[in-house]
């Protein structure tokens, strides 16, 4: 673990959940136990991902303070995340600050594609790791201008399993599914679809050429997550892009509005303190 990590979270705060209690462990001698009867039982009761949750909370606090709307894009490999983001940032960068963090096991190609579209991007090479974690995001932010009052897109590693468990501090997960995959993906990877706020059905330009039952897919998706918004689009032709862009704009405005009310409250209390000290 790194010492200079800026992603916050007082480590000591996480230790406070050990409540050691000592059992006298008086097993009667007539039943054998595999372990040495002298052992001391230490109760832990801690979530396996508590450390990640701590870093995610730190990221989320930073994003809230700076009014950044953060999306975590998850999908199978090749669903079109990078293609979609390249189109997206090209348009939205004219309206507010945007930036992209990409996770990839090997290369920096995705980041280059985003930079070519005109947005700052940094790639996290996860090596063997199959998902991004909140600690890695904290470090990536050191290499990227934070898109204050704008939008940060995180392209997760292509994998519909693990990223569901790892909170990065995002406002929401967006799951991308393309019509070249099976329509039963929402059922097979239910945890991921259940964790997402929005599902993008991509590559709809290919529908005439593939055997993909859209209605059945949408029904499966709603079965797993009735509250999820679903939009259909093509990053290739631009079909359906407007609805997606509007969804992002709404999120950005909401984040900005929250930042404004937070700042107003701070200003009000600072004014009150000043008035009190002048009197």
């Amino acid at each position: 673990m790194c010492v200079t990590c800026g992603c916050g979270v007082d480590e000591a705060a996480m230790h406070s959940h050990d409540h050691p209690h000592f059992h006298d462990h008086d097993h009667s001698y007539d039943h054998s136990h595999d372990h040495a009867a002298e052992g001391r039982l230490v109760s832990i009761e801690r979530d396996i991902l508590a450390k990640n949750a701590g870093f995610a909370a730190g990221n989320r606090r930073l994003f809230a303070e700076r009014g950044v709307f953060v999306l975590n894009l998850v999908s199978s490999p090749g669903s079109g995340k990078t293609a979609l983001l390249a189109q997206t940032v090209q348009i939205l960068r004219e309206e507010f600050p945007v930036a992209v963090i990409g996770g990839d096991q090997q290369t920096a190609r995705d980041a280059e594609r985003i930079q070519a579209a005109g947005a700052p991007a940094v790639q996290i090479n996860t090596g063997k790791g199959c998902h991004l974690d909140a600690h890695g995001i904290g470090h990536a932010l050191e290499e990227l201008p934070l898109p204050e009052s704008g939008v940060l897109f995180i392209e997760n590693v292509g994998n519909l399993v693990c990223p569901a468990d790892f909170d990065l501090g995002e406002a929401c997960k967006v799951v991308v599914l393309s019509v070249t995959e099976g329509e039963d993906k929402p059922l097979k990877y239910a945890n991921m679809f259940a964790a997402a706020k929005l599902m993008l059905l991509n590559k709809i330009d290919l529908l005439p050429h593939v055997d993909f039952a859209v209605e059945r897919c949408l029904e499966y998706a709603r079965r797993v997550n009735p509250d999820m918004r679903i939009l259909q689009l093509s990053a290739r032709t631009g079909d359906g892009m407007t609805a997606w862009l509007d969804w992002v704009r709404q999120g950005q405005q909401a984040a900005l509005a929250q930042q404004v009310s937070r700042l107003e409250m701070e200003l009000t209390s600072a004014r009150a303190r000043l008035a009190a000290s002048v009197r």
């Binding site: 052992g39 001391r40 039982l41 832990i44 009761e45 396996i48 079965r223």
Partner: peptide
Amino acid sequence: GYPVRPTGGQEMRVKDILVE
């Protein structure tokens, strides 16, 4: 019917350890 909203069984916890 659908859906059934999970209320339990999503946890992943280290419960306790026995040490010497």
